[in-house]
Design a protein around this nucleic acid. Structure first.
Lengths: 221, 221
DNA sequence: CGTAGCTTTGAACAACGTCAAACAGCGTGG
DNA sequence: CCACGCTGTTTGACGTTGTTCAAAGCTACG
């Protein structure tokens, strides 16, 4: 019950601790990563946070028996790996070859005093993550397989905007682990949508053409 | 996971800090709400955000056919209803009789310049929400019914800390809609845990005694 | 070409949901 | 004080969605 209070203050004090003098690194250091390369792992010390420049990144948690939940895919411009505490609560891997910028982690106050605009960007990105997470809980907890797929396709179409032609950067396994399904169910749902003429699955397996967005929106529930 | 320890330890000190007379920010306006009373609804203009003083609040989203996902329960000290955009993306209702404080919503910048400490509290609360949401996605997407229940009981025990004796402020329906289950499955899982001697369900249906936390933690997966 | 890694497809199965009924606590009113 | 009905919870039988297990198809890439 006081937990909230506690953590709140926790934040403030720990920020103070982090304020120790340091060469100003507003401009992080770029880094190139290759397909499936680990950027950081759950439990690692959170010395940096990151921004995607090109490519895409997945962040995920694992259960002891290997079940995986991908909480988000991060596309160019997205910030990820920012933590309240001092260790990463997720693992992060590149979906394909990608470039990212690493920023040395520091307190928001320090950040704000040095570069207000960047600080605001970071906060805004946090709120975006939160909104996405909240929408995703509804999807995971209450939507059926077909509704999950429909929602996912619409969201990705929106984020990748190639006008109904979505070139997915992730495999079926990644989709499944993001949507709380198995790859088989993902596959079956997609072919069902294709048979209904709502989408098209060209030979190149990673790309999808949305033929009937209205129908998808109806399916979204 | 000493993170938990850390937070608990800091709790004491930080509460002390918070109770100190603080340069008054917006002293929000207190409001008493009764069981199931709506505090705001999804789509409402987000003119205020709130802090729970006593009682508990649920925030949730609905699908068109009435399926509901409760994204979080808010206990005393928790902040809820803070939005990035200008309308609420959730509905909020009191679980039982409760009192809350309403703060007039304003930009974080304005808030920060006027009362840095309070601004930090707000940001920290956002990060808390995000962390909870992320953990909850793992639960919703990848855990089985029994694992969901086990996790839920441990989390609630931690937050309500009456040491193994949890007095839940919510009904089975609320639990179900939070965990992505049905009330029947919640009920069955609880009785299964009771039959295994891991918990005890006294006559008063809202209270639960955790007899074997270790077993629950093993079940958590 | 040939092999490796995804993806799709099919059939059997299990976990969870649905439907229905019994049960318990609790407030109300006779 | 007890009967009554209301509401929330538990329990049971059965159905369905999505998973599991297995195998075959594609693509890509050497």
């Amino acid at each position: 019950m006081q937990t909230a209070h506690a953590t709140l203050n926790n934040q403030i004090t720990s920020n103070a601790t982090l304020l120790r003098p340091r060469p100003a690194p507003e401009f992080g250091t770029a880094r190139a990563v290759t397909k499936d390369e680990e950027i950081f792992a759950e439990g690692d010390r959170a010395a940096y946070f990151y921004k995607v420049v090109s490519g895409a990144v997945r962040t995920f948690k694992l259960l002891s028996d290997g079940r995986r939940q991908i909480d988000a895919f991060h596309l160019p411009g997205d910030i990820f790996g920012l933590e309240k505490g001092d260790e990463h609560r997720f693992s992060a891997e590149a979906l394909g070859d990608a470039t990212i910028i690493a920023y040395r982690r520091c307190s928001l106050e320090a950040l704000a005093s040095r570069d207000q605009a960047f600080a605001n960007q970071v906060i805004a990105s946090m709120m975006n993550s939160l909104e996405r997470a909240q929408d995703h809980m509804l999807l995971l907890g209450r939507k059926h397989a077909l509704e999950k797929i429909a929602t996912f396709l619409l969201v990705m179409a929106e984020r990748l905007t190639e006008d109904g032609h979505v070139d997915l950067p992730m495999s079926r396994i990644d989709m499944a682990d993001h949507l709380g399904l198995t790859i088989e169910t993902v596959s079956r749902s997609l072919t069902q949508l294709e048979r209904q003429g709502i989408i098209e699955l060209p030979a190149h397996r990673r790309s999808i053409i949305l033929r009937n967005k209205a129908a998808l929106e109806r399916l979204e529930a």
